[in-house]
Amino acid sequence: MKSTRNVALTLLLIVPAILLLVGVLVVPLTEIVGASFYRANMGIIGDEFSFDNYRQILTSLLYWEIFLKTIGSALLVTFLCAIFGYPIAAHLVRAPARYQPILFFLVAAPLLVNTVVRTYGWLLILGQVGVVNVVLRQLGLTDGPLRLTSNYFGMIIGSVQVFMPFMILSIATSMRGIDRHVLQAADILGATPAHRLRTIELPLIAPGLIAGAVLVFGLMLGAFVTPLMLGGTAIKYLSVSVYMDSMVTFNLPRAIALSMVLLFVVSLAYTIQAALTKKYSQVHA
């Protein structure tokens, strides 16, 4: 008797939250998945069931170019975040205890500044009369302004800055867990720094590195502000195409079909992460 009442009470407590999630997320997502199977005509969604949107997307070379360039850019951003985030994480973890809060602050604080603002900063730095071009001209290295935005270069530079803090914090978390004596042992036994990094440090920070990489990769695939503002329509990026299709050319079904592809790739990344994390936690258990 009491247990049925407990179950009823539990349900009563949880149902309002479930209603929010179902009403504002599950239903809208289900609806767009459904809508992606209908053809659009002049911005109006037709009533004939078809795979046309997916067929168009999956058979057109243009879209494959978009997919490959999007995944390639996201991989490059992830790689650069890891390469340049690693020294910062190492420096942060080894710094004297009294400097750590300020260093930590410098890494994390940019995350609390809106991405639109940070990307605007990059527009000022990389623009035609921006900081980089002015300095290059005054040094006599260039004749005319270099084109540094509205292309992949600007998009990658900006995106790495936007996402690197996630990578640094993720690597630093697993670095903190390393027993310093293990590293000292490697030094005493005569390992070179490179050898020590490869055989001891990297395996130990792998969980943080993988978690950070998947986080950055997933965020970058879904990222939209920085690719739109620094790359624009000059670059082939999935999220920008989704935005153009839905808000500019009003082909909502195609935009939805495209975003389904995006959702698929992001879910795939998380699945791989779950598998890798499991593998590494088993190795160290």
Binding site: L21, E31, G222, F224, A255, S259
Partner: peptide
Amino acid sequence: ISPLVVPALIIGIALLYF
């Protein structure tokens, strides 16, 4: 916690349509 997993862009499209 699923709103954390679905990219904001996709939530945006879904809610636009909805």
